[in-house]
């Protein structure tokens, strides 16, 4: 990585108050993203990946920590500075069926960010930009006046992408952008996102529960479990040499559309525990087949095991059957 990262997240925490106690959705997570990089964020429901995606661009008020964007801690920004920053930072949501106002046409939907930020003085100038954006994301010009309900999921997601690109951002959080789509449409949208990145040099955070999709788009992948980042490495490394026992189990659980693949499947016992007032120690210890006494008492830090490969496990590279199998 040359020079300063575009995004540097330090000890970010986001807790939610619930009647039963504090829910630790994101708990002391640190990482950075280089300009032009795609960081994949994976994990199962409730691991905090979406909360992290939103907290790091201040769509949620954080409980603690710092988020440095291009050299500034944006958590200290005033509202006016935030408004300026929002042009540079965008998000695309999962569900193209619910995130678009059904009463606005395609053109009006894409115009919204341009109007809010008073980018153009005249209507023809703005319309030209809208058409340009539609072309960029692969929406035919005849759909200019169409409404979302007339379009399929893939086209709706293209509208969401066009809206996020309208202000020429540098950094885009993609929160499960293809999860609601069929595989053929999913492939079209993934290609679009990759091509856009090549053309405009965007930096992405790509959040998904689908590991093969994440691998396809990401340079590096971070695996989350119950509010903690448990492993962070280059996307090839994560798949070839997973070191955290949770990452290993997660990867082994993916059903592969292939014949003759021999795999040692690790079936995890039980369910993810509650993120409300989690106990000390490793969050994964209760389901880990390698757990030792230490895992129950001391929380493992995310540390570099190899250059560029960080793991939050006391026994990474030294896993041996723990108390669970005794």
């Amino acid at each position: 990585m040359n020079g300063r990262p575009l995004v540097d997240v330090r000890h970010l925490k986001k807790y939610f108050k619930t009647p039963r106690g504090m829910l630790h959705a994101v708990d002391d997570v640190s990482f950075s993203i280089a300009r032009g990089e795609t960081l994949g964020l994976v994990g199962e429901s409730g691991c905090g990946k979406s909360t992290l995606g939103r907290a790091m661009i201040r769509l949620l008020d954080v409980t603690g920590g710092e988020v440095w964007f291009d050299g500034d801690d944006i958590l200290t920004y005033s509202e006016a500075s935030m408004k300026a920053l929002r042009k540079r930072v965008q998000i695309v949501f999962q569900d193209p069926y619910s995130c678009l106002n059904p009463r606005l046409s395609v053109a009006e939907l894409i115009a919204e960010p341009l109007i809010v930020n008073k980018i153009f003085r005249t209507r023809p100038e703005m319309n030209a930009r809208i058409k340009e954006l539609m072309d960029t994301v692969g929406l035919a010009e005849r759909l200019f006046g169409a409404y979302p309900h007339e379009l399929d999921g893939g086209r709706r997601q293209r509208i969401g992408i066009a809206r996020s690109l309208a202000l020429e951002p540098e950094f885009i959080v993609l929160d499960e952008p293809v999860s609601a789509l069929d595989v053929c449409i999913q492939a079209q949208i993934l290609n679009l996102l990759n091509n856009l990145k090549k053309e405009f040099g965007y930096t992405y955070v790509f959040i998904s529960h689908n590991l093969s999709v994440v691998k396809h788009v990401s340079d590096r992948i971070a695996v989350m479990y119950l509010g903690k980042m448990v492993e962070l490495a280059g996307s090839r490394t994560i798949f070839q040499d997973p070191l955290h026992p949770y990452t290993q189990a997660l990867l082994s659980a993916i059903p592969l559309p292939k014949m003759d693949v021999v795999r040692d499947r690790i079936i995890l016992e039980g369910d993810v525990p509650s993120p409300i007032e989690p106990p000390e120690g490793c969050r994964f210890a209760g389901r880990c087949r390698y757990r030792q006494e230490l895992c129950r008492t001391k929380t493992p830090e995310l540390r570099d095991i190899d250059p560029g490969h960080a793991v939050a496990c006391h026994f990474a590279r030294n896993l041996s059957q723990g108390e669970a199998s005794k």
């Binding site: 199962e44 429901s45 529960h209 590991l211 189990a249 082994s252 659980a253 995890l268």
Partner: peptide, 9 residues
């Protein structure tokens, strides 16, 4: 989720 899916399958 994928690990729960593995259990059910």
């Amino acid at each position: 989720d994928v690990t729960i899916q593995a259990q059910v399958l």
